[in-house]
């Protein structure tokens, strides 16, 4: 059996504003970038999409979705007016189960989640709406453990990498995360959306600039500072997870789109491997 491999990798935003039909310059640009990513993924015809979502929060270690067919209707708890998310996922439960076992063998606390009615998070559903609109590709989803640091997140990525290798599947990995996460806490007009702090904007651009140069190891080293200063979504752990899956390569990431969503930073980044 040939070894499985990761044939594409993405950083993608997960706020439901992007799935709405509300027009805003930045949201439209992000949607275009997202669609572009979707087209590229479609061209790759992967066997599975593996997602890590900062909006699937776990507390008792790291969770892995292993229900073969989660179905339901999701509404975001904050942005319930941005639309409903009906879902009917095809989950690669074997991959999730194996990744959980490997992660446990590497010392992480893990849990597989296989329950009818389990809430699928907004980030996962937003990303899938753009990159898997026809539900063509099976998915695997892992949670963001709020207590995990960079080291554990790298290890979690490594476990996923190994599980993919063993599976003989061609996978695309998607790290669903925001960048700076300082929301506006008032109602805003979407067409007036901007980064809530210019310093956050500068930090986001600096990080994306390094990613564009393939200086991923440097980004990892700076992640702590970046997370603290720019209040990054879940401490930018999602990036560490992604680097774990890719073994921190020096490949550059192309920024397909960058801009604000309700004051926070969001980007679609594509690593071609």
């Amino acid at each position: 059996m040939p070894q499985g491999s990761i044939i594409g990798a993405y950083i993608a935003p997960g706020l439901p504003h992007l799935a709405s039909d509300i027009a805003a310059v930045s949201w439209d640009a992000l949607r275009r970038g997202f669609h572009q990513a979707g087209e590229h993924i479609h061209a790759l015809q992967p066997d599975v999409l593996v997602l890590y979502s900062t909006q699937w929060i776990s507390v008792l270690g790291h969770s892995f979705q292993t229900h073969p067919n989660p179905q339901g209707l999701h509404v975001d708890e904050n942005w319930y007016e941005m639309g409903d998310f009906p879902f009917d996922l095809r989950v690669d439960a074997d991959l999730g189960t194996r990744a959980a076992a490997i992660a446990a063998s590497l010392g992480l606390a893990t849990k597989t989640v296989n329950y009818h009615g389990f809430p699928i998070d907004t980030g996962t559903l937003v990303a899938l709406r753009f990159v898997n609109p026809a539900n063509q590709f099976p998915v695997a989803v892992v949670s963001c453990n709020i207590y995990a640091g960079q080291e554990d997140s790298l290890t979690l990525g490594k476990a996923v990498r190994q599980a993919i290798a063993e599976s003989s599947k061609r996978a695309v990995v998607i790290s669903c995360t925001g960048l700076s996460a300082r929301f506006f806490t008032d109602e805003i007009a979407p067409y007036n959306d901007r980064l809530s702090q210019t310093e956050d904007d500068a930090w986001n651009r600096r990080i994306l600039g390094l990613i564009e140069q393939g200086r991923n190891a440097e980004v990892l080293a700076m992640s702590g500072d970046y997370a603290r200063t720019a209040a990054v979504d879940m401490g930018f752990k999602a990036f560490a997870w992604l680097m774990g899956t890719l073994d921190t390569p020096s490949s550059p990431g192309a920024v397909l789109a960058y801009g604000p969503v309700w004051g926070t930073g969001a980007a679609v980044v594509e690593y071609q491997l």
Partner: peptide, 9 residues
């Protein structure tokens, strides 16, 4: 149906 995201079991 409410399934607890942390304690679904």
């Amino acid at each position: 149906l409410s399934v607890d995201p942390i304690f679904p079991h």
